[in-house]
């Protein structure tokens, strides 16, 4: 049985897969900033090879700082990151590509010229892969980048990032400038590229509702700290809603993450204890599973409330 399963599954994406990136105690403090505060503090996590991880958090939570450190554009104040390869950036090593929010294109360069720049700046370059992406989204190669729409400029950046054949692709709010159709098409194409090449993807986003089935792992940041990290299905299975009449405590086991009350109803979102199945609750209480969006919102609201308490 096990043998057959192993034979049937894709080697790049089996369980217990390798780790492509390990981050330990990562922190960043901007000098001269307001109060000298930490933009990122004590962040430790791993990215499994071939995973698609969503980086979620409020504005100013430290998402872009984290991505910039992983991309090698910022030096961390504390901690370090480990790539499994020896020759980082070399042809055999882990290659990290970063698509930032502000798209770095030369206004007067044509799209074809930008690909030339990509080819010169990267030790490994797959021109056909970059061109395939541009053809897929009908981007004119001879047009000056400054005359492209925001969405088209984003596509040129995706093409250059993919052309560098990254083993880890970092995307800072990749679809925020795209129309609804392009959003879903770009998402599907990026996931297809990831499936074809075993590439690991880390993307930041605010649109949690669009992540269902797109990301398999979550990094949730608030105020520079990691609130939750792990496989999304596991995180959600470890949480539950109790819905019932107005009460001060939940009717079953679990640590309350968030509770909301009306005059005659209470809803508790709890983190379940590690051991054993959940005992059924007595009527009139009912249970209901937690969606990714509910999980994220509850965690963020909890942090905000705690912050108000401190102030």
């Amino acid at each position: 049985m096990n043998l057959k399963l192993a034979a049937g599954s894709d080697p790049a994406t089996t369980d217990g897969r390798d780790t492509v990136l390990t981050v330990t105690g990562l922190g960043k403090r901007y000098r001269g900033g307001r109060d000298n505060t930490w933009a990122l503090r004590d962040c430790s996590f791993t990215l499994p090879a071939g995973s698609v991880t969503a980086l979620v958090g409020m504005n100013g939570a430290g998402k872009t700082t984290l991505l910039s450190i992983l991309a090698g554009l910022l030096t961390p104040t504390a901690g370090h990151l480990t790539l499994p390869s020896t020759g980082q950036g070399g042809a055999d090593g882990a290659r990290i590509a970063f698509v930032a929010q502000e798209k770095p294109l030369y206004r007067y360069f044509s799209v074809a010229d930008m690909l030339q720049v990509g080819a010169r700046l990267n030790r490994v370059w797959d021109q056909e892969r970059a061109l395939r992406w541009l053809r897929r989204f009908d981007i004119p190669l001879d047009r000056a980048c400054g005359r492209l729409s925001g969405g088209q400029q984003a596509q040129v950046n995706f093409a250059i990032a993919l052309g560098s054949r990254p083993s880890v692709l970092l995307l800072d709010e990749p679809v925020s400038t795209l129309d609804p159709l392009a959003r879903s098409e770009v998402t599907a194409e990026l996931l297809t590229e990831a499936a074809d090449t075993g590439m690991t993807v880390l993307l930041s986003t605010h649109v949690v509702g669009e992540l269902v089935g797109v990301a398999d792992h979550l990094l949730l940041l608030a105020k520079g700290r990691l609130l939750a990290a792990g496989e999304i299905d596991t995180l959600l299975e470890n949480h539950l809603h109790y819905v019932g009449p107005r009460a001060d405590v939940p009717p079953g086991p679990g640590q309350v993450v968030w509770a909301s009350h009306t005059d005659n109803q209470s809803v508790f979102l709890v983190r379940l204890p590690e051991t054993g199945p959940v005992p059924p609750v007595d009527a009139p209480w009912t249970t209901r599973p937690v969606t990714l969006e509910e999980f994220v919102l509850a965690q963020l609201k909890k942090v905000r409330t705690a912050g108000e308490g401190e102030a």
Binding site: T13, S51, T192, V214, D216
Partner: peptide, 9 residues
Amino acid sequence: VATSGVNAN
């Protein structure tokens, strides 16, 4: 993956 925009995993 290509038709539904779901992750391969």
